[in-house]
C-alpha cells in the first residue's frame, strides 16, 4: 500500500484539530472523574457554573492544548511555511 501523497496544508490543520479533539476526550474523562467541578469551584471560591459549562470549558482547554502542540509541530516540521 503506498501513500506518497502530500497532504495539503488546510487538511493538515484539519487533521491536527480532529486528532486533538479525539485525544482531548481522554484527559477530560480522567480529570473530571477525579474532580467534581462543583466541588472544585466551591474550594476555589470561583463563581459556580453549570456542570455542562464546566465540562465543556475543561474539554476545550485540553483540546486547545493538544491542538496547539500539534499545530506547532506541523508548522516547525514544515520548515516554518
Amino acid at each position: 500500500m503506498t501513500n506518497n501523497r502530500k497532504t495539503p496544508a488546510p487538511l493538515q490543520v484539519a487533521m491536527v484539530l480532529w486528532l486533538s479533539f479525539l485525544l482531548a476526550i481522554a484527559p477530560t474523562g480522567i480529570v473530571f472523574s477525579l474532580f467534581d467541578p462543583n466541588a472544585v469551584s466551591a474550594c476555589l471560591t470561583v463563581p459556580e457554573v453549570s456542570p455542562l459549562a464546566a465540562y465543556s470549558i475543561g474539554f476545550f482547554a485540553f483540546w486547545l492544548l493538544c491542538a496547539g502542540t500539534g499545530l506547532l509541530c506541523v508548522y516547525f516540521l514544515s520548515g516554518g511555511e
Binding site: 500500500m1 501513500n3 501523497r5 497532504t7 495539503p8 487538511l11 493538515q12 484539519a14 487533521m15 480532529w18 486528532l19 479525539l22
Partner: peptide, 21 residues
Amino acid sequence: WMREQVCKYMCPYARFQSAMF
C-alpha cells in the same frame, strides 16, 4: 462537504492500515 477527504487526510485509523494489514 469533506466526505472522502476525511478518510484520505484526516482519519488516524486510515493511516494505521499498513501496520495492521
